[in-house]
Design a protein around this nucleic acid. Structure first.
Lengths: 147, 147
DNA sequence: GGTGTCTGTAACCGTGACGGTTGCAGTAGT
DNA sequence: ACTACTGCAACCGTCACGGTTACAGACACC
């Protein structure tokens, strides 16, 4: 399910965090290295979620609707990947098997724990953090003492 | 990326946790409600990782190689989904953009944090936990007070 | 008002992963 | 030898993803 949509959204948001002028989708697409139309599909979801604002017409473009420091990545993830990291059941288990019968709910609980753990980890980072890290040249990568 | 492989692996492991006789893939496939050959593709990876053992020939089948209480779901996840929950870069960002240039490493750090959070959450559950929960009839679902 | 620049959206397609299916070789009990 | 298994390769249908084109609506500028 993951599929780059989240990555693209984060990239676009970090781009918009640079300054508040408002960028057209063509410009953003140039940096993300994708196509403007597809990017707009992602941006439309971000706009619907209230992260960004779109101004139509000549001179229009996209701009952040909230401060970059006020957009935790967990919210972006939730918006872009509502199903969570673990696909529950592409095929339902056999209900006639005693284990299979209770398996769906048992796995759903596991999936919920996993999603919660992932979102808590993402909640500690904001769009501003990613934007700052992207600009900070990682010439020396001695930052990763924390495993 | 998720894609049910992890769910299938957990289901099969929970099934094998019932008792140590050894079950043929056809039996497991019956409960998981999939096909024996595809299940064996999953089981082969579990065997290579050392979670289960396969005995060929007549009367053979699969059995746990370690105690069910000694198989945390985080290890199973790592084996089945080595790429983690966040696909890093289906398309590389434009290196000529100052933000795009540092974006890959910046997002990689985010993805690493996310994967770590997810695995830590999964590390708190074992195959035995899932097996027990699957057998425990969820007639009353008052367990979910924790949001 | 007309024009050009933008977003919004629908439609279509190529690609690739995923899951299903068949077939066959190898192994081991009986 | 026969039978019941695993192991593995090959093939196929399906579907989400991303790319692409086309067009309608909105808005600034002349």
């Amino acid at each position: 399910m993951a599929s780059g949509r989240f990555a693209m959204a984060v990239h676009a948001l970090a781009l918009l965090a640079q300054d508040g002028d408002g960028y057209p989708s063509a410009y953003l697409a140039g940096s993300v290295n994708t196509h403007a139309v597809f990017l707009r599909r992602v941006l439309a979801r971000l706009a619907r979620a209230g992260f960004i604002e779109a101004r139509e017409g000549r001179g229009g473009g996209y701009r952040l609707a909230r401060a970059a420091t006020d957009i935790p990545l967990s919210e972006v993830y939730r918006e872009m990947e509502p199903e969570g990291p673990l696909t529950a059941s592409p095929c339902d288990p056999n209900p006639r098997c005693p284990v299979g019968a209770g398996m769906r709910s048992a796995f759903a609980a596991t999936a919920e724990v996993a999603r919660s753990g992932l979102e808590q980890a993402l909640a500690r980072q904001t769009v501003a953090d990613v934007a700052r890290r992207a600009l900070r040249p990682p010439t020396q990568k001695k930052k990763e003492k924390r495993t």
